[in-house]
């Protein structure tokens, strides 16, 4: 019985060993060398790369940018996503149409989404400037992706637009699994809307929402494509994330060793996230 289980698991284990485990181990090895991407001798340099990475202001500012991106995007996705789910849980004309539309941003490829928003933010001919000036909200056109104050927020908005609907769809499914009788019973008991939400609805929501929130957090932590297309990390590095830094070091500068060590520090941080996630899931009973 046990043998059969392992046999069935073998293909997956092979994938995980050869295309995940091996490269990860190799990355650890490369991170202790001065390997270049192409050619050149490879020398053992001990923990030099890590010392340089951890000691550089650039690294920490990039980490901070990444964390801000995660916090802003995920929070907004949750606020908007949950709000939209509560709205769609109400009965109104056009509800099914609206719910069907929500799948569109989510299904749009990330690169297309990034491209679309870059065109929308265009400082000269973009729709965003046109809309805001024509409605009188700003006086003159602005360079949304060209100012460090607004670039990260602008990228976040693009990310939120695409990803909030996933939260909505998950939350909506959970909301609709709340038995009607519970609602009615609470109304009869004279509970107000807020206490009804807390006592009746929230217990059904919290599990799925936890899963969604942590999934989104980790995805946001890895962010690369949307930033690559929209700003390439500029202006003045204000949108440069850890993944962008690894790309720059390993592939543009050919410094594979440094790139690997930045990536590994990132893995350490994200494994903290993973640990937290597994802990939460366990409490939710996912692995019982």
């Amino acid at each position: 019985m046990m043998l059969r289980s392992w046999l069935l698991l073998a293909p997956l284990l092979a994938v995980m060993t050869f295309i995940i485990g091996w490269p990860l181990a190799k990355t650890v090895g490369v991170s202790f060398t001065d390997a270049k991407l192409i050619g050149g001798d490879v020398n053992w340099v001990g923990a030099d790369n890590f010392a340089r990475v951890l000691g550089s202001g650039m690294f920490w500012s990039v980490v901070w940018t990444t964390i801000r991106f995660v916090l802003i995007s995920v929070t907004a996705e949750f606020a908007i996503g949950l709000g939209a789910a509560l709205l769609l849980d109400q009965k109104f004309i056009g509800r099914n149409l609206l719910r069907a539309l929500l799948i569109l941003p989510w299904a749009l490829p990330t690169v297309v989404n990034a491209t679309m928003w870059r065109l929308i933010y265009n400082p000269d001919f973009g729709a965003f400037n046109a809309l805001l000036t024509q409605t009188g909200m700003i006086d003159s056109y602005r360079s949304w992706l060209g100012e460090p104050g607004s670039a990260l927020l602008a990228v976040c908005l693009a990310d939120v637009w695409k990803n909030f609907s996933l939260v909505t769809l998950i939350a909506l499914a959970a909301l609709q699994s709340v038995p009607r009788e519970l609602h009615s019973a609470a109304v009869i008991d004279g509970a107000g809307p807020w206490s009804r939400f807390r006592a009746v609805v929230l217990p059904y929501l919290i599990g799925p929402l936890t899963v969604a929130i942590v999934l989104r957090t980790i995805e946001a932590f890895k962010v690369f494509d949307i930033i690559w297309v929209m700003t390439r990390g500029g202006p003045a590095n204000s949108t440069k994330t850890v993944s962008m830094l690894v790309y720059e070091q390993a592939f543009s500068f050919q410094k594979a060793g440094i790139g690997a060590s930045v990536a590994l520090v990132m893995v350490l941080v994200s494994s903290l996230l993973i640990a937290g996630y597994v802990g939460l899931l366990r409490r939710q009973g996912e692995f019982r």
Partner: peptide
């Protein structure tokens, strides 16, 4: 032009060619 900070050559051409 303050937008120069996010312009590449083609953006410069667009702005100049539009007479701005």
């Amino acid at each position: 032009n303050p937008n120069s900070k996010e312009y590449l050559e083609e953006d410069v051409r667009r702005v100049f060619s539009s007479g701005e």
